[in-house]
């Protein structure tokens, strides 16, 4: 189910190499649309706050690599997929509803 790192475009690769990442996330965006940019901003902000150093993020532009849309079963854009830890979750939309995103990342209980 999980894909190797090298597969996506790692435009925005954050996280310390030394620490074993706990979260494997993929964000599928459709070019630089308003929704896509907002999703990236929202995600970066949230990750910085909640999962600093514990994640591996791949951002994939499905305009440039449509095959990933097919392989990742992407219908809506933008879509954030939590590949690990299981269970797999798909969060569609610009990630502006922080509570829902946190719930999707199983982080809603934390503070």
């Amino acid at each position: 189910m999980t894909k190797k790192q090298g597969e996506g475009t790692k435009e925005n690769y954050q996280g310390a190499e030394s620490i074993k990442p706990k979260y494997v996330l993929r964000l599928y965006v459709a070019g630089t649309s308003r929704k896509s940019l907002r999703a990236m901003q929202n995600l970066n902000k949230l990750l910085k706050e909640e999962l600093e150093g514990q994640y591996e993020l791949e951002i994939i532009d499905i305009y440039q690599q449509p095959i990933f849309a097919k392989n990742g079963q992407i219908v809506a854009a933008p879509t954030l997929i939590k590949e690990l830890p299981l269970p797999l979750r798909k969060m569609v939309g610009d990630l502006s509803d922080t509570n829902k995103v946190l719930a999707g990342l199983d982080l809603s209980g934390r503070e």
Binding site: Y28, A30, I74, A77, T79, V92, G93, S96, K100, V101
Partner: peptide, 20 residues
Amino acid sequence: SEIEETGEYDLEGLFIRLGM
């Protein structure tokens, strides 16, 4: 069950797949 809607979205994924 896998999908959570977290904001505004479109079905660009579907368009791209179909277009491809």
